[in-house]
Design a protein around this nucleic acid. Structure first.
Lengths: 230, 230
DNA sequence: ACCTGAACACCGTTCAAGT
DNA sequence: ACCTGAACACCGTTCAAGT
């Protein structure tokens, strides 16, 4: 019927592996992804994967990077009309939405870009845009990092597990302020939404204050003295 | 020499298991914790652990909760002189320090309190203090959640992996704004510190603005109408 | 009640062998 | 170059058996 060991066309490719692994993780979670299970899903034997990736972790990294690639970065384009605060806001919302689409991958993505190309591109783009907007480089680095902290932290706390669904787990006597309402999964979604929105606004307000204080004194003087642009 | 199967004193206890597991994870990371390895460390055979915990995950939950138990909550005591902003600041710093002491557990703790008692106590205490400070309950919930998002997100991005140590992983042509300096582990620590400090200040500034706006109009009126205290 | 060895159904990865 | 089966050194968990 078909050749056994060496077909003229390879059965596998990096893209096919990543796509299948991503679908498996989305459907059944990280723990469902084993090299053997993935290979079976691809109609192939376990060790075959090692012709295309050095380790299982490398596969997972590639899958995680497809999520970073979904994050909208158009607001940071040099000709985009949005100012840095609006850009940061819209980016955070898009970033969080991408993570929400792949809840099982959030724990990986929250650990930082590592050496994943799309993750690094996000960091690079945000940094570049903040510098262009007038933030000193050291501060621009902080802005990019702290926004990532907040978005990934909120995604992790919201989508990965959060509080537990079974409210009988809590003895109200032990936690006098945490009412029954806190413990319902449905209520939790609204809390997560509200906390994200409130936190994002607070963060951007606070950064705005720091930016304006900086423009008024030190940075402006330093940049004028050094003759740097914008 | 010694009795084989049933000594008069149990060889194991929950506390001993949790302590040994915590030391193992701190020293060698999450992947070093297997039930068999942990049992060996305790001089016991693998299945013995199942007399004290239902699953390996239950052991890990207990270990994680010892970290939450290290978080300082004294700033939220009713008789503590610190106002809510200072209290939140000091708590965030203590929270982050506790996580930094146990970097390998951060991925677990960042997923939320689950049903871990110490984790729930933290959430309960912060919520109670914010309500006492004058935040409406729904907002107090958000404040607690968003602070947790930021602290755990920053700890995860900082201590767990972050950027990768080997700077040759990055081709500067691909990331025009990310200079060599971004990629050194030593530089990264300073960035993480700076981003945490900057973000925490921005968050508290922004929350202060929202609090004062709330006190000026809706909340104050509602609370005066309902005759609630402070 | 608490520990044991044996067993089950898995893992990730290496490697010689095939084409 | 790319896939295979066999093998190595592991896993978490169950369970009957011992005391």
């Amino acid at each position: 019927m078909c050749a056994m060991a060496r077909p003229r066309k390879p059965l596998l490719s990096r893209d096919l592996i990543v796509e299948t692994a991503g679908a498996l993780v989305d459907a059944e979670g990280l723990s469902a992804l084993s090299t053997r299970r993935l290979a079976a899903e691809l109609g192939v034997s376990g060790p075959s994967l090692y012709n295309h990736f050095r380790t299982k972790d490398a596969i997972l990294d590639a899958v995680a990077d497809t999520v970073s690639a979904q994050v909208d970065l158009s607001m940071f384009a040099p000709d985009d009309p949005r100012d840095w605060r609006t850009a940061l806001h819209d980016w955070a919302v898009s970033y969080r939405a991408a993570l929400a689409r792949h809840p099982h991958l959030v724990p990986l993505l929250a650990q930082g870009p590592g050496r994943r190309p799309a993750g690094l591109r996000v960091a690079d783009t945000v940094f570049g845009a903040m510098v262009r907007a007038g933030w000193p480089p050291a501060q621009a680095t902080s802005v990019g990092a702290l926004m990532r902290y907040f978005v990934t932290g909120s995604a992790l706390g919201s989508f990965a597990r959060g509080f537990v669904d079974d409210e009988t787990a809590y003895d109200p006597a032990d936690y006098p302020h945490l009412g029954q309402a806190h413990l319902l999964a449905e209520h939790r979604e609204k809390v997560d939404e509200g906390a994200f929105t409130t936190g994002l606004r607070a963060l951007l307000d606070g950064l705005g204050t720091q930016y304006e204080a900086g423009v008024r004194d030190a940075w402006g003087a330093a940049r004028r003295g050094a003759g740097q642009d914008t």
